[in-house]
Design a protein around this nucleic acid. Structure first.
Lengths: 399, 399
DNA sequence: CGTCTATGTCCAACTAGTGAACTCTAAGCT
DNA sequence: AGCTTAGAGTTCACTAGTTGGACATAGACG
């Protein structure tokens, strides 16, 4: 059914061109579409009619004060995308439309020991609730982005061994959710989605090469290269948590010694404070105490920053991104952690790479991953999903 | 004259598609073109005829032993590309055609202290000589790739401070050569070109993500991501030589301590052997002695390998390439250095990244950079260059 | 109220890709 | 040797889809 070089593909490309132009501009008249896309007025006329019949686009008789211009805009219910993010302690869901607007977003706690079935049950319910709340039709779902806190095998879609959600190992989250919702599901790990989220909506706007460092229970990085998530041939790119900082350092869960993670991740850092600050401390708590002036917590956070900075320096020397965005709970510490990171980067990265690097805190906090999932759904969809009938055809399930 | 969404643009795109397929494969039958491009056999038939009439492509009656397959290849005189590589001790030039064949190649020594003007004079002469030797017309030059042993500023094309060719700092090699030859010149550093060369002709064939590690006077890496050289926003990606292995190690020329370079590069390693093996030792000499069984040299090379392996492990964790190719003089040591590298990678990289990694010696030796320059010229050329008349039209200059 | 001008639509012309039928050649089998 | 077979390349009628130009439309301006 694929005809990569045929007229139909040309037509399809032209449809996408028009949709993209309209989406970027918000609303356009046909003549404007013709000018910006370079297509002839006749073609635009045909395409707009086709899109209008398909329900992708709305034509309002005469919104502008011109001669007789009919303004064309994406119909609000042309399609929606959904982002689902399984975190280590909670589940987040967001619903957005194709105009990059977030229509609804909600999170709820999720027990770490919950089974995958329980987790997906909860996710399905929450998705249903949010869709109901926004009042759109289920059949309008164009795609779902799914975030999981662990490595995903690119080929099989299987969740690798992850200590964060025990018992989920070996499941195929995308298939699972696809089976429940009946729409395409695209899955990626939390660091990659955080990177995507910050790039589209947060601190990474306008940058095409960035690294998103997520410090939580572990340390991971999401790499955006040339505007796209880079996963590597095996899908395990971005494992900054396991670069070696000290060959004779503490033993890491990965089996090596002195990984960045052993100096920065919650599971290794929190115990340092247990004797002085109690045993049920969380990273969040440490950050709060540090901001309130607790010297021990400040010291620990600064040390973590320095070590992260060493890792980031290596990253910079190798990849030379223009921006590094820090995410996860630790980002809330602001300058307390960014200062030491910048200092370390300045010391260990080659000057030409460090000079033009900006290190920023994430702007989205815990929302980065869900929004990234939304962005993933949007980007994987390709504007073409808007166009083939599948979206608007009657889908018997879920009525 | 531009009709961005019309059939003619589709036709053009299909022409390019065919040309690209042929160029990547060297030569294909029409049926193979149809399969790889996804176009129908009828379309391919038409396109091939058009290209043949235009002189872009040659059809050899029946080269393979098949049924009646006519093999299609880019016509040898459709255009030629030139690769120029300035090394630390010599200058290499290669001339190739669009069918990925190297028509002529030559190298001559170049004094380290030669001025840039002298260097370019020599390069121009050598290029002229080789073109004359191959007997093709100068007007057929489609592009030139240029390799320089130092950092190039992407924006300005200015050569950064390089200790390898002193006195060249601040020159603009691409403009210089462009002025002399009158054709587009694309410049890049030696590590990137080595990566490209090995990918197209050497140990990296068939791989889309690889890292080429060049160990010589310094240590640099060329990164190929998704089949293209990745330079990073600032153009300094791949500086593997300056990732920190030991915060309290020897002081590096970059100002930091314990950079990989201080454990692996010739300038730091050779002095270790001077007291025992004399002062005018080269890396080449050390490798030769090691192969002959000299225990000191073997030890040094193994140590170098281990350290490179540590750096490569970091690289793998971050980028997860499917192949690492070792280039430079050191690669001649074969297993003497590859063994320790693999061992180190196995120890320090996370297992999932290390498992699918292959570490190979470069297959091109000192030719990697010139051939990479050739490949750069080919890839930057853009396939459309072949199609619009400019290349075949009579260009008044250089007759 | 007539003219002007830009918008959107319709139609005939044209471009270019496709499937199906057809021819051609060499290999394999009997 | 002769027949069959299967893939390669070509031809042709058909179809999809864009375009330029003619045409209708409706507000703006004098």
């Amino acid at each position: 059914m694929e005809t990569p070089g045929s007229q139909s593909s040309l037509h399809r490309a032209n449809l996408e061109r028009v949709v993209r132009a309209v989406r970027l501009a918000g609303s356009l008249t046909q003549a404007e579409i013709a000018r910006t896309t370079g297509l002839s007025a006749a073609t635009v006329s045909n395409i707009v009619r086709e899109l209008k019949d398909g329900g992708t686009v709305e034509v309002t008789p005469t919104s502008a004060g011109g001669r007789r211009a009919r303004s064309v805009s994406l119909s609000g219910d042309a399609g929606i995308v959904i982002g689902v993010d399984f975190g280590h302690t909670h589940l987040r869901v967001a619903v957005g439309n194709l105009a990059h607007q977030v229509l609804a977003e909600e999170s709820e706690p999720l027990d770490v020991d919950a089974s995958s079935t329980q987790g997906f049950d909860r996710a399905e319910q929450l998705v249903s609730r949010l869709i109901a709340a926004t009042g759109v039709d289920r059949s309008k779902i164009a795609g779902v982005g799914l975030g999981v806190p662990g490595p995903i095998d690119v080929e099989s879609g299987t969740l690798g061994s992850t200590a964060i959600l025990p018992g989920w190992t070996g499941t195929r989250p995308a298939e699972e959710l696809r089976g429940r919702l009946g729409v395409p599901v695209h899955v990626d790990n939390d660091a990659n989605l955080g990177a995507l989220g910050e790039m589209v909506w947060g601190s990474g706007r306008g940058v095409r090469d960035l690294a998103y460092i997520k410090v939580a229970s572990g340390v991971g990085a999401g790499l955006v290269i040339n505007g796209k998530i880079y996963r590597g041939p095996g899908g395990t790119a971005g494992e900054i948590g396991h670069i070696t900082l000290d060959e004779s350092g503490p033993v890491c869960r990965c089996g090596n010694r002195g990984c960045l993670e052993t100096f920065a991740a919650a599971r290794y850092v929190l115990p340092l404070l247990q004797s002085s600050h109690g045993t049920d401390l969380t990273m969040e708590g440490v950050v709060r105490l540090a901001r309130d002036g607790d010297p021990g917590c400040r010291r620990v956070i600064a040390d973590v920053g320095r070590h992260i900075g060493s890792g980031v320096a290596n990253l910079c020397n190798l990849l030379n991104p223009s921006r590094v965005v820090l995410g996860g709970d630790l980002a809330e510490a602001g300058e307390l952690v960014l200062g030491p990171i910048r200092e370390s980067v300045g010391r260990y990265a080659i000057p030409s790479a460090a000079r033009q690097l900006s290190v920023l805190p994430g702007a989205l906090g815990g929302r980065a991953e869900v929004l990234g999932a939304l962005a993933l759904a949007l980007s994987e969809m390709g504007d073409s999903t808007l166009l083939d009938g599948t979206l608007h055809a009657v889908t018997p399930a879920f009525t």
